[in-house]
Write a protein that binds this DNA or RNA. Structure first.
Lengths: 230, 230
DNA sequence: TCAAAAGTGTTCCATCTACACCCATGT
DNA sequence: ACATGGGTGTAGATGGAACACTTTTGA
């Protein structure tokens, strides 16, 4: 009945930080300075402190180590504990998905860089798989939540917003329909302002904002919804 | 720049095991024999072994401790690491969602029992919150995946199946529409057999089975789907 | 022949995509 | 004027809910 002897594994927290940069979904990676996987790129993070909560820890590490403080969204992704995932010591890793709005440019240190999420450089450990899990999560949530608020600046035109969606989803998103879908769902509203057209002319674009800046599920029960009348 | 001293927290794995029993969604709980939370109900689980993976560990503990071996589905839920979640020592917990089909009756030991998931007894630690997370996950996945296969026996009539859905979702599910939805999505198929009607008469019910017995997403892109033509 | 349970046909409705067309602005 | 980009109107497609009706059985 007694199981194997209890583990005192190290625990680390990691973050998949996405931002839309130049129309592409980008992920913040860190270059490893020492073995194992020296020279490979890894997700930012580090050891869980003795008295920290998990969320607290990843926020601290992002602030201290890669100077990312203005996350608009952060949620837990998954925990990996395969004994083989770290070649030397046993290490469990809890990963997070974090989003940075497109209009900020966090001053990240020398050894970190933004990489295209669809086509990342060689990554150490199981971090490539974790990053893919983050992308899947983001894509799924764009469909049924208001998570777009975390990718977009506070105010934006519809064509800008459709650019963020396109980058994150990996396929075209028609601004004209996106506008109606998000308006109907009550996710966005017009600010009343508009942006003067550029040098090539065109009608000035209206400015929108997300009505909430916290994650909300706006399209639950896409199917198998409860009966409308009791 | 240096963070707090690294933690050597204990790590445990827990499982939210659901089964539909007598038309109700039920969760398998364990009665704690010693403090803290002596006498309260908790999720089954235990310490992660030094050389085990997380999935491996929860499977082992369920088999050893509550004699649950025939899980049709198991997936990771979340990891909690709040320093306050365990009154004495620091303990991280990774939880899983596990499903047992309605036609099995695992022989569980004395100190465990099935409880109604919507109305559980007082639970220790943060286990009530974890259980709710499991319910939410199950409900959501019933909507867009074939996860019903894990609640239902291998073969079933549509009215039985709608009973499992009703129990898990907490609202009525019309067998007639469920049939068409799941057929259209290719989740289920007729076996060709049928069940003789009971003593009160009625047309014999056709038997169905799920076509796959692994989780598949059958209704991704409910919205914001990629353009059909390039 | 009647009640009961399963299954089918059909209508309605919500919601998304596609696309033609209209609007406001710069050159 | 006309090119350019934004915005509106609308038709079509999809897919699920509701519900009346039909089918098949037992008593």
């Amino acid at each position: 009945m007694a199981g194997p002897r209890a583990s005192v594994a190290a625990h680390e927290v990691l973050a998949v930080i996405f931002q839309v940069r130049q129309q592409r979904l980008s992920v913040l990676l860190w270059r490893r300075a020492r073995p194992p996987y020296e020279g490979a790129w890894v997700l930012p993070g580090g050891r869980l402190g003795a008295t920290e909560g998990l969320d607290e820890s990843i926020r601290r590490q992002l602030a201290q180590k890669v100077d990312v403080r203005d996350l608009t969204h952060l949620e837990q992704l998954e925990t990996r504990g395969d004994p083989e995932r770290h070649p030397a010591d046993r290490t469990l890793a809890t990963s997070y998905l974090g989003l940075v709005p497109a209009d900020t440019d966090p001053a990240t240190p020398e050894d970190t860089a933004w990489h295209p999420a669809p086509d990342p450089p060689p990554m150490g450990f199981d971090h490539a798989a974790i990053m893919r899990a983050g992308r899947r999560r983001l894509r799924a949530k764009l469909s049924y939540t208001n998570i777009g608020f975390a990718l977009a600046p506070r105010e934006f035109t519809m064509s800008e917003l459709s650019g963020y969606y396109r980058a994150a989803l990996g396929h075209d998103v028609a601004a004209t329909n996106l506008r109606r879908v998000l308006l109907r769902r009550g996710q966005i509203e017009e600010t009343g302002e508009s942006v003067p057209s550029g040098r090539s002319g065109g009608r000035p674009a209206a400015l929108f904002r997300f009505r909430a800046r916290e994650l909300e599920i706006t399209d639950a029960f896409a199917v198998l919804r409860p009966p409308s009348r009791e």
